[in-house]
Design a binder for these strands. Structure first.
Lengths: 151, 151
DNA sequence: TACGTTTCTGATACTTGATATCAATACGCG
DNA sequence: CGCGTATTGATATCAAGTATCAGAAACGTA
């Protein structure tokens, strides 16, 4: 039942930038449009490839701005270049398929509760946390265990 | 009471390499000695700097071998180059001071229990997990709140 | 111990991700 | 419209990490 708990809080990325005193430009709109239509996490290099008219420097700068604004979240990475996705939910964690690298999201209040109880054992003030669950996703399971319930 | 739960299982790193069919060489002994005397996590570049007689390629290769052998663990990173530390304990997580970047270790069975209960919500088979707690460490707290209980 | 095969080493060149520079351009307020 | 400031992007540069490959070292064997 609690499977579709991801609440898509649509953040207007351009607004997020403007709120930080940054100008609304054609280039930024292009980048942001590309990001907003992405369902999945992406790397900076992917954006560069998809937006050949836009300079690398600008892509990297814009991503940094969006992360600083809290509109993008820098995802855990298995290896290689960091990935980003729109920060749609208040606080969540990520699943990473160790076969195909696909990144998913989940939320669970238990994790947050554990964090609070952990406070006493930790040698300092907790300011945040991050959890990554490595999985073999259903699709990859379907591929290896040939004959499962995936198209 | 459960503060000193870190059990230092001394792993002989050279043995770990030999078990994988790799030769015992002077260079590897040098690298391993440096790693074994390190109390803290380190980066590949740090090793290169500390061992000027050893080639970069060899340092990087040896680290990879040790990680593959399970003798080193690749740590979560805040930003920049990945860090490594000796895999002393069976399973643990890391604290990262967001001021000074110092990495610490902790274990807590609650986290493992949560993982198990999380299984049903996750869209695949869980094969592992990783948790990072971002803190302001006591030392940094002592520096900012001048007059605290740290030397 | 000497030998030969195999592995290892490290200087170098290269790849890739990301940042710095800076002249030309675009924004947006008055 | 026109000006000051922010933005852009080609390019150079930086940094982490890998590929290459000739020479050196390990180690089983005799």
């Amino acid at each position: 039942m609690p499977s579709d708990t991801v609440i898509p809080i649509e953040i207007d990325l351009i607004t997020a930038l403007e709120d930080r005193g940054l100008r609304k430009t054609a280039t930024r709109s292009t980048i942001v449009a590309r990001i907003e239509t992405a369902n999945d996490a992406f790397t900076a290099e992917q954006l560069c490839r998809d937006l050949p008219g836009v300079g690398r420097a600008t892509v990297y700068r814009t991503i940094r701005h969006l992360v600083d604004a809290g509109a993008l979240c820098k995802l855990p990475i298995l290896d290689g270049a960091p990935m980003y996705s729109i920060a749609r939910v208040e606080h969540h964690h990520h699943t990473i398929c160790s076969k195909c690298g696909t990144i998913g999201e989940f939320r669970d209040s238990t994790v947050e509760r554990v964090m609070r109880s952990l406070g006493k054992e930790i040698d300092g003030d907790i300011v945040g946390h991050r959890m990554e669950i490595f999985i073999t996703c259903n699709r990859c399971l379907g591929i290896s265990k040939s004959g499962a319930s995936i198209a």
